[in-house]
Design a protein around this nucleic acid. Structure first.
Length: 281
DNA sequence: TCGAATGTTGCGAA
DNA sequence: TTTCGCAACATTCG
């Protein structure tokens, strides 16, 4: 359950649950999910383990501690992060769980992950956080994601636009679903070379990305098989998808048939009729 | 049995 | 230097 809106949904739903709590114990079921095997011991040695907040950067969940250290959690394809009561905890099937924190008042925070791709990293200080932060491009919903900066960046590359948008060093947080949706809304063919996108289309693309992400966040994300936030609630954006996994169905804009092709090893959905190869302004 | 699945990384070859 | 394809990670589902 992986893209920006789903991660944002998890962060918002867990912020109130985690803020102010302490991690009393850490149970590890899949050690490889930890970037640093010493992380649990390191955390225990911290004088103050109070969680002061929860934020998101790209598709990472960041848990903030009182002394300025952070833990980053990436859900990858199938990760889920949710609280579980003390009563419920013993009944859980542990083989799907990568790790779990025991919080104050005897609640558990579970990181369950069917495919076990999810990762957890340790950012002890500002230096490590800055290095982490530098790995990503601008947040698409942030102030720095302007039409001018997007157009400039597009001019600097000759790659196909779809893999370019998926590249987290260019824009942070977009994944396969929302790239297809955004390109459809902006009427840009996914294989268009980035440097051939005219300024007007760049503006439309920037606005489309923000519109799609905002609507998805408002709907609590998209649910396929694995994404559920908190205990079992489903994301509502699944019903609002206009092209993703709708191959063979009529385009909502022009009634052409949605096609599915491979672009950069990812399944890609678009309308060949109203997303021409290259759009001129 | 094979292929594909919301993601990321690293390697080697154009 | 940039871009691209592929494998790997691990598991389930159709």
């Amino acid at each position: 359950m992986p893209e920006l809106p789903e991660v944002e949904t998890v962060v918002r739903s867990l912020r109130g649950v985690l803020t102010g709590r302490h991690i009393q114990a850490w149970q590890i079921f899949w050690p490889r999910s930890l970037d640093d095997p010493e992380l649990p011991a390191t955390l225990q040695q911290q004088a103050d383990n109070r969680i002061t907040g929860l934020t998101r950067r790209a598709k990472w969940i960041l848990v903030l501690f009182a002394n300025g250290s952070r833990i980053g959690i990436h859900l990858r394809m199938t990760g889920r992060l949710y609280p579980v009561s003390m009563q419920e905890w013993p009944t859980l099937d542990k083989h799907l769980i990568s790790w779990a924190w025991q919080l104050d008042e005897s609640e558990w925070l579970v990181f369950a992950d069917q495919r076990r791709f999810g990762r957890t990293i340790w950012l002890p200080d500002e230096n490590s956080y800055n290095a982490f932060n530098a790995r990503f491009g601008p947040e698409p919903l942030g102030r720095k994601f302007t039409t001018a900066s997007l157009f400039r960046a597009l001019q600097g590359s000759r790659r196909q636009i779809k893999p370019w948008l998926l590249d987290q060093t260019r824009i942070a947080g977009l994944g396969n679903i929302y790239v297809d949706e955004s390109l459809w809304l902006a009427q840009i063919h996914p294989q268009t070379a980035t440097n051939l996108v005219p300024p007007k289309q760049a503006q439309l693309l920037r606005d489309s990305i923000r519109k799609v992400l905002r609507r998805a966040i408002a709907a609590n994300g998209t649910t396929f098989m694995n994404f559920k936030f908190l205990s079992g609630s489903e994301g509502g954006y699944t019903d609002e998808l206009l092209v993703f996994r709708r191959q063979g169905q009529p385009c909502p804009r022009c009634q052409g048939l949605i096609e599915r092709i491979q672009v950069a090893q990812r399944s890609t959905h678009f309308c060949p009729q109203c997303q021409p190869w290259l759009v001129r302004s």
